[in-house]
């Protein structure tokens, strides 16, 4: 008997469970786009170099092109389609919209998912390469433009929307802080 090349699995995406049979070679990115019709997650390089495919897996940002779908079973996956609260945009989405943090929009879902991760990671006190004082007692570093640039650098934008992306992330982070 030929070895089986596909498996049935259940993916939990944006709080919803989907049971499907996938080819073992299928990446999480392709499963989302081609099997679940969740095309908001973009493919810019398919090899972990651009960040367009960024989603949140168990709350942490990850590039879904470097993840096999079969390995994502049982994880909580959040894609751009799950970020807004119904018709109410998430503050990060709203800031990208209002400050024009995009042009063609193709990197945008990845940028937004990444920004959600950045805001969480920063609030949890994680340092970055731009953090000057990384001693634990230094506390949460200020989320300066420099910090945002560094932390968002895994997400390429060929349109060159970085200047307004930085402003959008800063605005959303401030809004988040005020609501805590």
């Amino acid at each position: 008997m030929a070895p089986s090349t596909s498996s049935a699995l259940t993916l939990k995406v944006n709080g919803e469970k989907h049971t499907l049979s996938v080819d073992h070679r299928t990446t999480l990115l392709d499963a989302l786009r081609e099997r679940l019709d969740l095309t908001g997650t973009k493919k810019g390089c398919d090899q972990g170099q651009c960040g367009a495919c960024t989603v949140l897996i168990d709350g942490r940002r990850a590039v879904s092109c470097l993840q096999l779908a079969v390995a994502a079973e049982g994880r909580e996956i959040t894609t751009i389609e799950g970020v807004a609260d119904g018709d109410r945009l998430h503050p990060v989405q709203q800031a990208f919209l209002d400050l024009d943090g995009f042009q063609c929009g193709y990197c945008t879902p990845g940028q937004i998912c990444s920004a959600l991760g950045v805001i969480e990671e920063h609030a949890a006190g994680w340092p970055s390469a731009a953090t000057t004082d990384i001693r634990p007692e230094a506390g949460v570093p200020e989320l300066t433009a420099e910090e945002i640039r560094e932390r968002m650098s895994g997400n390429l934008c060929r349109c060159g929307a970085y200047v307004s992306i930085v402003q959008a992330v800063a605005r959303a982070a401030r809004a988040e802080e005020e609501t805590v």
């Binding site: 786009r33 095309t39 970020v83 945009l89 989405q93 919209l97 995009f102 945008t108 879902p109």
Partner: peptide, 14 residues
């Protein structure tokens, strides 16, 4: 813009 920040905008392969 809303379609682009929510992932609803469909590009050619989508």
């Amino acid at each position: 813009g809303v379609a682009k920040v929510t992932g609803a905008a469909r590009y050619a392969a989508e």
